[in-house]
């Protein structure tokens, strides 16, 4: 399997605080990797660095063999291939659900509206919201909004989907529908890097689980290994707290 994206010894500081302290991660085609760790461990920052929403201080980010820290790289072009979904959905409140999904393909990729619209409707059909296509996001529940946000990213047909604690802002009763969609995507072969606090989901869906602690990768392995036989004391302590 070929590597789609990799972080190589990435360091990131906010002022005096070093949030990422030499992180290296590879993500292969069709692989699903879950990032776990306490809040503030650097999960979100890593994801944002990967699609260039944050600049890194040291190290490199390589996408399909191309270094993204090269000054000649246009971040806007990169982000068409590496899409991120946020904890707070960040749907565009002034656009209908359908227009939210269509905005990227039509404006950033310059694809014809009719074609994009058909695809967008198919995606909305898939999450059972086709009949709500013309409504505004604030008419939908949190779970529905987050599923629209995921589909909005998918409409760009990204090479990698980054998911930043996408269920953390949701009412517990709405978490399931979002995780079901992600499970569905994982089975369909979407390459995903998922920062999450949902340990059962990680155990069932991830090919690999990475435990981040204070900006460093403490441990990485299969879900069975991480959850059942954590080698590091910090991993064990974290898991005993969340379970």
């Amino acid at each position: 399997m070929s590597t789609v994206i990799s972080a190589q010894n990435v360091r990131k500081r906010f002022g005096d605080h070093e949030v990422l302290r030499g992180i290296s991660v590879d993500l292969a085609e069709h692989e699903v990797v879950c990032l776990i760790g306490a809040s503030g461990s650097g999960k979100s920052t890593l994801l944002r660095c990967l699609n260039l929403l944050e600049t890194i201080d040291e190290g490199d980010i390589v996408f399909r063999g191309q270094s993204l820290t090269d000054a000649r790289i246009d971040p806007n072009l990169v982000r068409r291939h590496i899409s991120i979904v946020f904890q707070a959905f960040n749907l565009f409140p002034h656009l209908s659900v359908l227009d939210n999904v269509m905005l990227g393909p039509v404006r950033a990729l310059g694809r014809p509206r009719d074609e994009v619209k058909a695809e967008a409707m198919q995606l909305l059909e898939r999450i059972g919201l086709a009949q709500r296509a013309l409504e505004f996001p604030d008419r939908l529940s949190g779970g529905q909004q987050q599923r629209v946000a995921i589909v909005r990213s998918l409409a760009m047909k990204p090479d990698v989907l980054l998911l930043d604690e996408v269920t953390s802002a949701l009412d517990p009763t709405l978490v399931g529908e979002v995780l079901d969609l992600l499970t569905d995507l994982a089975r369909g072969g979407t390459t995903m890097l998922i920062a999450t606090h949902e340990m059962n989901f990680a155990r069932n869906v991830a090919d690999r689980v990475i435990f981040l602690h204070d900006g460093e990768i403490v441990e990485s392995g299969t879900p069975q290994q991480i959850f059942d036989q954590p080698r590091d004391a910090a991993t064990a302590a974290f898991l005993s707290r969340v379970n």
Partner: peptide, 27 residues
């Protein structure tokens, strides 16, 4: 306009001008 809107627009690959015109200004 919340910063999350700008980040969402950027993560869809919209240029700065498109982000302004399609996402920030209307709101």
């Amino acid at each position: 306009v919340p910063n999350g809107q700008v980040m969402a627009a950027k993560s869809l690959g919209l240029s700065d001008v498109q982000t302004m015109r399609r996402v920030i200004l209307p709101q």
